[in-house]
Design a protein around this nucleic acid. Structure first.
Lengths: 333, 333
DNA sequence: CTGTTAGCGCGTTCAG
DNA sequence: CTGAACGCGCTAACAG
């Protein structure tokens, strides 16, 4: 079983030409029943498996797409990824993965993979676009989870401004007026959008945004400590917090606890994303559910349909979100 | 910029044969300096990038390996994966990923990828081997994170029995005697090993294992509730718990809380894995740290070295673990 | 319905 | 040190 059998072996055994073997496998209906059976028998006995490199070379397509993800250990992107991977598999596509968090080149080598025709396109799951991502040769790119600030690539995402507003309005409806915001890096468009939604909601309620109430974090658990330092060490500290993602929310609850402040008794809090560990946290986190799996699924669909139609259309899909009220918010007393 | 340039374009522009272009790129030292420079110039102006499908076809290798992971959204495997992915990239390899949790075929289609010569081997990150994984054609397989009960494949893992013993001994040293164990599915060898380590440690301390103290869960947050039902509804409930992974530990703390039992005041608890969210949980979870990233790294090293040497040796690497004491364990009063 | 032919793009002999 | 020729394994076009 050391050597592999080729299409020629099958052809010889079945007593037909290699073209017929190829046809039998790709378009069975075009082949006479008897020959088809003979071929299938030969395929079975040899265990023949077409060499996909040869197929790709011939067809000038790989049926493989690169998924570039900013950090696969981030539970948010892990779910987006799963949606994309499952969809690819359903369509007979494979996915080559690149993790940007461990890549010193920031994805450049993965762009080369499609230039080198080892993949047909790139689905990008990252809040920040790698520099020069779309330069030079036109590689098909779809953005999952973030819109393109420069409107060059199709994207599948949510309306961050509206989603943030819904979170802040929930806090407002509970009687809170001094509401702080812990954001992600503002270099990411989605963070800026959430900030804008926060400000709009505050303005709509007649509150004027104040720098004292805003802090730029980085979506990590650890950054929350210094964030709260900034937000709570003021004359009139906020009674509620809108936090840009659930991980920072976890960090914030811990940081609050070390100051002797309990959630939601002393401070209400709503997160963002609805990751699994937020629902099981102690207390369970009120948050905005983002349809991560669906985002991954749709972005891969856009990619594959574009590929099969020859070009990927410039579309911007926006999926709905949902506020999930749990244990970290309560009425202002 | 629509069509891609081939080796022939470069050859024509540089005024040499395609063979010389190929040589210049693969073995620059064998080519005269002047011709080399001419070729490099032509490569630069054309933006030539070798078609990797053609290269693979010719070389009969893809420099791609499939990583099959039981669930990429599991923070444990996400880190193992990152170690493997980074290592692959450093060696010029790409990784094709397959997520078993969403695959109805349980990885069969990914095995076909290497049969179809789209990948050179498989690194498997799953507690249970997919059925018939190594059947038929010999595809190179390396197990990451789990040993092979049948000793067919090389593996990179930890000593689960010893690691479990260290966890239980910690509880013992705090004066606990009635110690319960919440395990993962015992169909997984690693779960059986942890159970065995638990029993050995108990035996060594003069305690006889009892079915009342053992419960088979499935490593999920949710299964912990019914687990505690079984473990705590007995005459003399345990004063401490050894839980098979940190996710179940989170579930256990919640389940304990709903019964009015606080951790560690009413019940001590040690988890396993040391995932990020365990360290930030409330209370922070005492656990056994598993070198996940390193496991991924080493398993990919074994794979790639085996591939370049022609065959992957049957080795069993065991990496060290470490007990991390945090807030969920305290002396029995 | 089937066989023959001609590449897909590249690396590697083998001569020179 | 360089070029011509061949073939990796497959599929599409064209005859028959």
């Amino acid at each position: 079983m050391s050597r592999h059998s080729t299409i020629r072996d099958v052809a010889r055994i079945a007593g037909v030409s290699t073209a017929t073997v190829s046809r039998t496998l790709s378009h069975p209906d075009v082949v006479a029943k008897t020959t088809r059976e003979a071929v299938m028998r030969a395929v079975a006995t040899t265990g023949y498996q077409p060499n996909s490199m040869a197929v790709s070379l011939r067809r000038l397509e790989t049926r493989t797409v690169v998924v570039l993800v900013s950090d696969i250990a981030n539970p948010y992107y892990a779910d987006v990824f799963k949606g994309a991977e499952e969809t690819a598999r359903e369509h007979g596509y494979s996915v080559l993965i690149g993790d940007l968090s461990t890549d010193p080149e920031n994805g450049a080598s993965y762009v080369d993979l499609v230039r080198a025709r080892r993949a047909d396109g790139i689905v990008l799951m990252s809040a920040k676009l790698p520099p020069n991502i779309g330069d030079g040769v036109n590689v098909p790119i779809v953005l999952a989870s973030n819109g393109d600030p420069e409107d060059r690539f199709p994207s599948v995402s949510i309306d961050y401004v509206e989603a943030a507003k819904s979170a802040v309005r929930h806090l407002l409806s509970l009687g809170h007026r001094r509401i702080g915001h812990l954001s992600g890096r503002l270099s990411a468009a989605s963070s800026r959008d959430k900030l804008e939604g926060y400000r709009q909601a505050m303005l709509d309620a007649g509150e004027t945004p104040s720098p004292n109430l805003e802090y730029e974090g980085d979506y990590s658990i650890d950054c929350a400590a210094s964030g709260l330092e900034h937000l709570m060490n003021v004359e009139e500290p906020p009674t509620a917090l809108f936090v840009g993602n659930d991980e920072m929310a976890i960090g914030a609850i811990r940081a609050l606890a070390t100051r002797g402040l309990a959630v939601p008794e002393h401070c209400s809090l709503v997160g963002f994303d609805d990751i699994k560990f937020g629902a099981s946290y102690n207390p369970a986190i009120t948050t905005v559910r983002v349809p991560r799996f669906e985002i991954g699924r749709r972005s891969m669909t856009v990619m594959i349909e574009g590929l099969t139609e020859g070009r990927v259309e410039r579309v911007d899909v926006r999926l709905p979100t949902e506020l999930v009220v749990r244990e970290t918010t309560k009425h202002l007393v």
